[in-house]
């Protein structure tokens, strides 16, 4: 089935105010750059964004924060974004901080049809407040619910028009689980190829999870913490 759409703007067809989005990436690594800038252009508001981080002030999800397009953020670490911290402390933005492994598993559960699961992470902390806890084999666990999204926006290195995706290096991170958990999943890729050009054994996300795919452009792929060693 050919799932190719023209570009990021066409891919966002049907995305409306108040919807819940998953956005792949870890820091600025593996984020869907084209789709984020298209969301800024589209101007949709009141969004709930599920993403491990919130970008930096002038890149990634930080661009949506600056335009006040995000109402609620579900993330594990938001320390790199001053505007985020300001909106949070002033009460303009609602934030649900979730342990990183729990966030990943909640997305995976949403994509796997599992409504809840138990994890030891956060037991005895404020993360567990109001949640069911239970002992299994003598250890305490917290019940966490699945996460699903109206739209999942993911970034892959390579994809074919059937929607099969291959990620590169640590740009994989949350993208595979989020791709599974979207009611509509959009993949932007650096290299869009024809079916048959990806070895089936090398597919990370099977095309069944992907509804729309397009060739991204003008990737900046900004590095957050450029660290190098001396050449010897």
């Amino acid at each position: 089935m050919n799932k190719q759409v023209k570009d990021a703007d066409a891919a966002l067809d049907g995305l409306k105010d108040g919807m819940t989005l998953m956005v792949g990436g870890f820091g600025l690594c593996g984020i869907p750059e084209n789709l984020i800038t298209a969301l800024v252009r589209k101007g949709v508001k009141g969004l709930t964004c599920i993403s491990n981080n919130a970008g930096v002030d002038d890149f990634g999800l930080g661009l949506l924060l600056k335009k006040r397009q995000i109402k609620t953020m579900i993330a594990s670490y938001v320390g790199e974004n001053a505007e985020f911290e300001r909106q949070l402390l002033s009460g303009e933005l609602e934030v649900q901080l979730t342990p990183q492994g729990t966030l990943a598993e909640r997305c995976r559960a949403g994509g796997a049809g599992i409504p809840a699961f138990f994890t030891p992470a956060g037991y005895g902390t404020e993360v567990a407040e109001g949640k069911e806890t239970r002992a299994f084999d003598g250890k305490m666990y917290v019940m966490e619910r699945w996460l699903r999204a109206d739209f999942s926006l993911v970034k892959a290195w390579k994809g074919d028009t059937n929607g099969n995706l291959v990620y590169r290096r640590t740009a994989r991170n949350f993208n595979p689980m989020m791709a599974m958990a979207g009611n509509i999943t959009i993949a932007e890729v650096e290299h869009l190829v024809e079916p048959g050009e990806i070895d089936p054994d090398h597919v990370h996300t099977p095309g069944i999870f992907v509804h729309r795919i397009f060739q991204g452009k003008d990737y900046e792929k900004r590095i957050e913490q450029r660290t190098v060693r001396q050449r010897v």
Partner: peptide
């Protein structure tokens, strides 16, 4: 509380397990 909210990242998962 009220001052610094960066989030737990993976620390809660790591220490719990």
């Amino acid at each position: 509380p009220g001052k610094m909210v960066k989030g737990m990242g993976g620390a809660m998962d790591l220490v719990a397990s």
